[in-house]
């Protein structure tokens, strides 16, 4: 887990912000606005996107074609955000997202990344021994399901579209959204009834 920032780090951050301000590159107001956008975002947005994709074929098509537009259609603020790619799980393939280089994460629709996502342990192990990582999360996949680890290294952010579990036939999108967790959108878990 990431340690809390030290006093020295915070002092350095203050100086950086002051320098950016002085050069007219970033204003305090812009930083505050960006924080507010991330604060407003939460995995609920991703969950509602998935639930709608499960129940609305047109929305599913939009989500697979243009993730940013699909996120905006559900109220996410995507201005200035990187592209959003969607990784669809199937009966034969499960996706797991990691950023081995840093901690790229679809903040615009999932909010701040959890500490474990940024941890050295997750970043190094997910890409090397994904099955062991999933087992520790209690995520059991059938033997014939291939795992595709997606290392988020550049200009996209990636969200998993999990499979709709059996036993949810006839559920409303709202009820479906209630079983879709942040962890399922990263791929360390799958939705359960």
């Amino acid at each position: 887990m990431a340690a809390p920032p030290s006093g020295a780090s915070l002092a350095l951050l203050d100086k950086l912000v002051a320098a950016l301000n002085a050069k007219g590159l970033v204003s305090e107001a812009e930083i505050t606005e960006r924080q507010a956008i991330t604060d407003r975002a939460s995995p609920e947005i991703g969950a509602r996107m998935v639930a709608r994709a499960w129940t609305d074929p047109d929305y599913y098509a939009l989500l697979m074609r243009d993730g940013k537009a699909a996120a905006e259609a559900m109220g996410a603020s995507m201005a200035g955000a990187p592209e959003l790619g969607v990784l669809e799980n199937t009966p034969s393939q499960h996706h797991l997202v990691v950023c081995t280089l840093c901690s790229c994460y679809p903040r615009a629709l999932l909010g701040y990344p959890p500490g474990w996502y940024k941890s050295f342990a997750y970043r190094s192990r997910a890409v090397r021994e994904p099955r062991a990582v999933l087992a520790e999360w209690g995520t059991q996949l059938a033997d014939d399901v291939e795992i595709r680890v997606v290392d988020s290294t550049a200009d996209y952010r990636w969200m998993v579209l999990p499979m709709r579990p059996k036993g949810t036939e006839g559920w409303s999108a709202e009820k479906l959204a209630s079983i879709i967790t942040r962890d399922a959108l990263v791929g360390v878990a799958v939705p359960r009834v």
């Binding site: 021994e129 099955r131 291939e146 795992i147 550049a154």
Partner: peptide
């Protein structure tokens, strides 16, 4: 990695 399960893959964005 010289380990892991045949069929498992890793997908990376590369310029």
């Amino acid at each position: 990695w010289n380990e892991g399960k045949a069929g498992d893959t890793v997908m990376v964005e590369i310029f």
